[in-house]
Amino acid sequence: MIPRVPSRRVRRLLENLEAYAFLLPAIVVLGVFHLFPIVFAFFISLLKWNMIDPVRPYVGLANYVQALQDDKFRTALGNTTYYAFVSVGLAIPLALFFAVLLNRKLRGMSWYRTAFFIPHVTSLAAAAMVWHWLYNPDQFGLLNYLLDKVGIPPQRWLLDPLQAMPAIIAVSIWSSLGRDIVIFLAGLQSISQDYYEAAQIDGANNWQLFRHVTWPLLSPTTYFILIISMIGAFKIFALPLFLTGGGPISKTLTIVYSIYQQGFQYFRMGYASAQAYTLFAIIFLITMLQRRVLAHRVHYDI
């Protein structure tokens, strides 16, 4: 029997079918856990719904109006902005500094790199428990123990309205530093040595090498880290959840924490979804702004 030669169309379909088969798991997961919730959340942001009441009246944009008038949501917005700018503002220079230090040929360099990366692959929940102990407000906390050694009275850290957010920022930098360093290192290693040699022949010193070769050529990497760090920072949730519960007196209440509180503690799903969409709008605006202001300063080559 002569096998029938499939037509081109069928053949292409079969080829694509294989591709679709490989894509299917990802499509299903993204569809069920990302796309559907995104669409559904917008739908319920227009309702007043507590998840279990069969009656869920349509309220239009009332939830959005409420969010804009809600003192607590505004507090969360302020706290999150403070967190985002301070944590990203400190993390990027620090990461760059360590990346430059680690971008050398030294014995045992891979050990140092690993050491910086470990916090990033540690479960944040587990790490937060450890930090909770370090920040213990009486003299048993390691930080207060060290302060006591140099004669400084014990601090209340996570329980102090002024110290709580900086304490959270410190943990978040500790945790994300490794990721930023690795991305910076990749950026640094993709800069051709030729530029450095040429600059050295022209008599450039170390600072000038950094300022006129490394910094501009690293700008795509810096830009990338800035964008993803900002987006990540506006979504901060796990650390306040584990370390402070949004307290003291709402000083570490962030937007996502507020969404969680409204949605899963007070079961106001409609209002929580409206806050989530408001957050999306904020992140979208900030990212657009960054593109506008910074994109033309990014050099992809000299």
Binding site: P161, G247, P248, I249, S250, Q265, Y266
Partner: peptide
């Protein structure tokens, strides 16, 4: 009452902290 409890809690904290 569940949310009112949280509201009271914050008021107590504010007062205890002298805010």
């Amino acid at each position: 009452w569940q949310e009112i409890r949280d509201i009271i809690q914050e008021a107590v904290e504010e007062a205890v902290l002298g805010k």
